[in-house]
Simulated assay, not measured.
Amino acid sequence: MKYEFDISEEQLERIEKYLANQLNSEEQSHFENELKSSPELQQKMEWVKNTALGIESAVLREQLDDFHSDISTKGPQKLESKKSGIAKWYPVAAILIVALGLFWFMQPDQNLKIYNTYFEPDPGLPTTMSSNNDFDFYDGMVNYKQGDYKLAISKWEELKNSGVSTDTLLYFLGVSHLANGNHDNAIYYLKPLSEATQNSFKEDTYYYLGMAFLKADNVEDAKKYLTFSSAERAKEVLSRIETD
């Protein structure tokens, strides 16, 4: 599994204490509530846990090697018991992480680096209104252009649920989700739109759909849809994918 996040010393210390049952009841409750609402924190905890497991496994293998070696020279021996289980290895993991410089930066994979280099949201449309439906759409467009993608998505999905399903609405819903960090929802809106016969944003739909697949680490589909787009930026991204 690839991990794409930064982790601070403070965050690692909290995770370490939680896994080792060293938080008081109030701290534990607060941490668990935060954990439920933060997929990124869940990913960080999984990484710390797996790191500690790897360290424990390596130490145990070394201990077994020593044990087997001692049998041949000293007779039957007893393996050291694991008094505190995996929890005792979390501080060791923390020390190794610091030594490797992973507190402050964890290198993202190459596809994500390309995505971060080239992705920019569509600049949006001029906010002019001529009907009730237009008002609802352009009200969301104001939020979109201000960078409040979550609020724009909320307004536009409500509009879609009311029965409005224009190519413009679906396109900006897809791009908004991508700008908001959700490539799966972006693909959900942009893929059907890319196959629609009526789409005023055909070239841009291909481009952003390709970028969504790139963020999802699906290089095959990313290249497929970027190739469909005649936009210069699509060609630049394709060139980077093929050379890196």
Rank of each mutant, 00 (worst) to 15 (best):
F67E: 08
F67S: 08
F67P: 07
F67C: 07
S69N: 08
S69K: 07
S69E: 12
I71M: 12
I71H: 12
S72M: 13
K74V: 07
K74D: 12
K74W: 09
K74S: 14
G75H: 00
K78A: 13
K78W: 08
L79M: 14
L79P: 10
E80H: 07
S81A: 15
S81W: 00
S81D: 09
K82I: 13
S84D: 14
I86L: 15
A87H: 03
A87D: 10
A87M: 08
W89Y: 15
W89L: 11
P91Q: 03
A93G: 07
A93K: 02
A94N: 10
A94C: 07
L96E: 08
V98M: 11
G101E: 00
G101H: 02
L102C: 03
W104N: 15
W104S: 14
M106F: 12
M106Y: 11
M106E: 12
Q107Y: 11
D109K: 05
D109E: 12
D109Y: 02
Q110K: 13
L112P: 00
L112S: 09
L112A: 04
N116V: 05
N116C: 02
N116E: 15
T117C: 05
T117L: 12
Y118C: 02
F119Q: 03
F119L: 06
E120G: 00
P121N: 03
P123A: 09
L125M: 12
L125E: 13
T128K: 10
M129L: 08
M129S: 13
M129Y: 07
S130M: 13
S130R: 10
S130H: 13
S130G: 11
S131I: 07
S131E: 06
S131V: 03
S131A: 02
N132W: 09
N132I: 14
D134I: 04
D134V: 02
D134A: 11
D136Q: 11
F137G: 04
Y138S: 05
D139R: 09
G140L: 07
M141R: 00
V142D: 10
Q146V: 01
Q146Y: 01
G147N: 01
D148A: 02
Y149A: 06
K150T: 13
S154Q: 14
W156C: 09
W156S: 05
E157L: 07
E157R: 06
S162H: 05
S165A: 15
S165M: 04
T166C: 04
D167H: 03
T168G: 02
L169F: 04
L170I: 10
F172G: 01
F172S: 00
G174V: 06
S176C: 01
L178E: 04
A179R: 04
A179N: 00
N180D: 13
N180L: 05
D184K: 09
D184I: 12
N185S: 15
A186S: 10
I187F: 06
Y188W: 09
L190I: 08
L190T: 05
K191R: 11
K191E: 15
L193K: 00
L193V: 08
S194F: 05
A196T: 01
T197Y: 09
T197Q: 13
T197C: 03
